[in-house]
């Protein structure tokens, strides 16, 4: 195993995982040889799990009404894709997620900026925000249902509330921890006001803001799952709950996998943003 050429498995090691390999080949930017092998490494564990899962299902170790195999889940996915249902539900969920993120994240960012830049803003608002922050936002579900019923506002409100705080806390912290020596330097060169903010404060706070965004995306999906499971007429959560009514375990599992993929997609988006905006940072160079 210590042998260099055996450190990473060649294509032969993956024989029998043809579905996964097809997926991999479809990935853009995956070239041959060393980069390919590098790109394969993170997929080894998920692929192994899927293989074990399928094997257990095929051998009858798993009862299909408890945990159907990946093949049946894929079949359910294909069925729902053909009928257009899956796309509709994904679109509904994504629209809610993005809307909540824009509203809550925007508000958190604005409050973080305000309180980060102004001591009086901090004195006025920070302790109240911190107090509200300690309430688990999902505890508001019953209240939200009373207020908004199961309309879109309910989901929007919960998601926005959930993402507001991580964005707020990290924006505030990022601005407050901008290097005071850099600020002194910039001022000694005559920078001030908007220019100082744009060229020193904001870039200095950006690593922290993006950490906040990443947290927020996690909370965004979590909140959406809960909200759609409890009260919705569309979306992935609704799809899952509806399938439960009809004992369609494969669809329930499909919904869970779709959530996982959407979460992963959101993470990829933030990583791309980090690589784009934090290219200067040694910690965010292309890994």
């Amino acid at each position: 195993m210590t042998n260099e050429s055996h450190a990473l498995p060649g294509p032969g090691a993956l024989a029998g995982v043809s579905a996964a390999r097809r997926r991999l080949r479809a990935l853009p930017g995956v070239a041959a040889s060393a980069p390919l092998r590098q790109a394969l490494v993170p997929w080894l564990l998920p692929i192994a799990l899927v293989v074990a899962w399928q094997a257990a299902a095929s051998l009858g170790l798993l009862r299909s009404n408890v945990l159907p195999g990946p093949a049946s889940v894929l079949a359910a996915g294909w069925r729902l894709t053909l009928s257009g249902e899956l796309a509709d539900h994904i679109a509904a969920s994504t629209a809610r997620a993005v809307a909540g993120l824009v509203v809550g994240g925007g508000l958190g960012f604005a409050l973080g900026l305000l309180n980060g830049l102004s001591r009086s803003g901090e004195r006025l608002l920070d302790s109240s925000i911190q107090m509200v922050r300690t309430i688990p936002h999902l505890a508001l579900v019953p209240l939200v249902i009373l207020w908004f019923g199961i309309d879109e506002e309910a989901k929007l409100f919960l998601v926005a509330l959930g993402v507001l705080f991580p964005v707020y806390v990290n924006t505030f912290h990022g601005i407050r921890t901008v290097d005071a020596q850099l600020l002194e330097m910039a001022r000694s060169y005559g920078m001030g006001g908007l220019e100082l903010f744009r060229r020193v404060v904001l870039p200095g706070a950006l690593p922290s803001i993006l950490v906040g965004l990443r947290y927020a995306l996690g909370i965004m999906w979590l909140t959406l799952i809960v909200a759609e499971t409890i009260a919705a007429r569309s979306g992935i959560g609704y799809l899952a709950m509806n399938a439960r009514e009809f004992m369609l375990v494969d669809v329930v599992i499909l919904a869970i996998l779709v959530y996982a993929l959407l979460g992963k997609l959101a993470d990829v988006v933030v990583r791309t943003l980090e690589r784009r905006f934090l290219a200067w940072h040694p910690g965010f160079r292309d890994a």
Partner: peptide
């Protein structure tokens, strides 16, 4: 009047040329 400190105090997110350009002010 310009000052140099013990730390270079370069903007880490600005390339070398942009850091030097800071010295030109407006």
């Amino acid at each position: 009047a310009r000052i140099m400190f013990q730390e270079a105090r370069l903007l880490p997110w600005a390339r070398v040329a942009d850091n030097v350009a800071v010295g030109l002010g407006p």
